[in-house]
Simulated scan of single mutants.
Amino acid sequence: MIKLGLLVRSRSVSAEKSPNNDLGIGKVTELSYSTATVEYFCSIGQRLEKTLPLTSLYRVQLPPQTRCYIQPESQDTWIIGRIFDWDEDKGQYRIDLPDKKIA
């Protein structure tokens, strides 16, 4: 089941309605009955949003050592980190940050 905040990829539903894209992994930011808005992070200065059919989306999990960018709610700056692990109990990633910090 697709939920807000999940990381997803899209696949083609049919040749006529091809939601498949080359944008890779995106984050679900809005949901409706049959569609989801997915935000794709291209760079710190560029993010794209696409509205895609829910039937075209599937959940993905990032492997360890994947580079990621986080923006703490209290800051305007981005921090570069790397995925360390997936915490199954908390349902979230553990991220290694600069100066040996963990998010």
Rank of each mutant, 00 (worst) to 15 (best):
M1C: 10
I2G: 09
I2L: 14
K3V: 13
K3Y: 15
L4V: 15
L4Q: 15
G5Q: 05
G5A: 05
L6W: 08
L6G: 01
L6M: 15
L6I: 03
L7F: 09
V8A: 12
S10T: 12
A15D: 12
E16M: 15
E16K: 15
K17W: 07
K17L: 09
K17Y: 14
K17R: 05
S18W: 06
S18T: 14
P19R: 08
N20D: 14
N21Q: 07
N21I: 05
N21F: 06
N21T: 08
N21V: 05
N21R: 07
I25L: 07
V28F: 02
T29P: 01
S32H: 10
S34D: 12
T35G: 01
A36C: 11
V38M: 10
F41N: 07
C42E: 11
C42W: 09
S43D: 06
I44G: 01
I44S: 03
R47P: 02
R47M: 12
L48P: 03
E49P: 00
E49D: 14
L52Y: 04
L52A: 05
S56K: 10
R59M: 09
R59Y: 02
V60H: 05
L62A: 05
Q65I: 00
T66H: 07
R67F: 04
C68E: 04
Q71Y: 00
Q75K: 12
D76R: 11
T77G: 06
T77P: 00
I80W: 01
I80Q: 03
G81H: 02
G81L: 00
I83T: 03
D85T: 13
D85M: 12
W86P: 01
E88K: 08
D89E: 11
D89V: 09
D89N: 09
K90M: 10
G91D: 08
R94N: 12
R94F: 06
I95W: 03
D96H: 12
D96L: 10
L97R: 01
D99F: 02
K101P: 03
